[in-house]
């Protein structure tokens, strides 16, 4: 299948420090990729480069065949590259229905409308209630976000992202900070993502990575050191070294 999302030779340095070094990857519709790496590997910088929040020093980002390297973050979202946030960034005084409604309206270019309420727009409300129901949030549709549990807020993040009808979805640690009892609901939501959507998930929880991903990419010191099947990642010597660092050698010294 043709690539819906491509990164080619992406580089970024801060002063003399190269944080992202020659990263290339390509995703097809329906891909389920996990991006992992030890702390400081450059995952956050990578996300910022890809989403357009940080300009790269060199390299290209392509979305659906179009080069978007010079297009800002807003333009990339409009072209179908949507991200969720590591820590939920929801509007505390708004309700789940308002969040999803706003995303649907924005996607359709109607978020600037000066009259009417989305609550009285049936075509918007059908989508809102469908999405909220799918993620088990229908009961909470009119509660303020500050009143709902953290696990449910994470689900709402996913609902908002899906409401934008993305082609490529970047999930930044979708289960981070969620109590063990609630991760099942999130995993279910991830399993139910639209089949033709290309998903890149950044995650620390290896159990989740192995259950979700069909392909794993390991980033260390700004470089891709592994790109392959989940089954092979733990056997890879470079990955072990990146994670365990000098412990591997330390046994010799001791």
């Amino acid at each position: 299948m043709s690539a819906v999302f491509e990164v080619a030779n992406l580089k970024r340095s801060f002063g003399g420090l190269v944080v992202t070094n020659d990263v290339s990857l390509s995703m097809a519709p329906g891909d389920r990729i996990a991006l992992i790496g030890p702390n400081g590997a450059g995952k956050t910088t990578f996300v910022n480069l890809v989403t357009g929040n940080l300009p790269p020093s060199s390299g290209e980002v392509r979305l659906g065949g179009e080069t978007v390297t010079r297009i800002d973050a807003i333009g990339r979202v409009r072209r179908g590259l949507v991200r969720s946030f590591q820590v939920t960034r929801l509007f505390q005084d708004m309700t789940p229905a308002e969040h999803v409604g706003l995303a649907v309206l924005q996607r359709d270019g109607r978020a600037g409308r000066l009259f009417g309420s989305f609550l009285s727009m049936p075509e918007v409300m059908v989508e809102v209630s469908e999405l909220l129901e799918k993620l088990g949030l229908a009961e909470l549709a009119h509660r303020k976000v500050r009143e709902i549990a953290y696990g449910q807020q994470r689900l709402l993040e996913i609902a908002v992202a899906l409401a934008l009808k993305p082609k490529v979805l970047l999930l930044d640690e979708p289960a981070a900070g969620v109590p063990q009892s609630d991760t099942g609901r999130i995993e279910q939501a991830l399993a139910d993502l639209p089949p033709d959507l290309a998903v890149l998930m950044i995650e620390h929880d290896m159990d989740l990575v192995f259950r979700f991903a069909k392909r794993v990419i390991v980033l260390a010191a700004g470089t891709i050191i592994f790109d392959g099947l989940p089954a092979d990642v733990t056997k890879d010597a470079r990955v072990r070294e990146a994670y365990l660092g000098n412990y591997a050698n330390a046994s010799h010294v001791a």
């Binding site: 960034r89 509007f91 924005q106 600037g112 000066l114 934008l164």
Partner: peptide
């Protein structure tokens, strides 16, 4: 009253709280 309740009013409340999040929705 109409304006603050409209989709645009909702967008503005979002901007007040977190402009970066609004950008991530594709709105300026």
């Amino acid at each position: 009253r109409l304006v603050v309740r409209s989709p645009f009013g909702m967008l503005c409340r979002g901007i007040k709280e977190d402009p970066l999040r609004i950008r991530a929705l594709g709105a300026s």
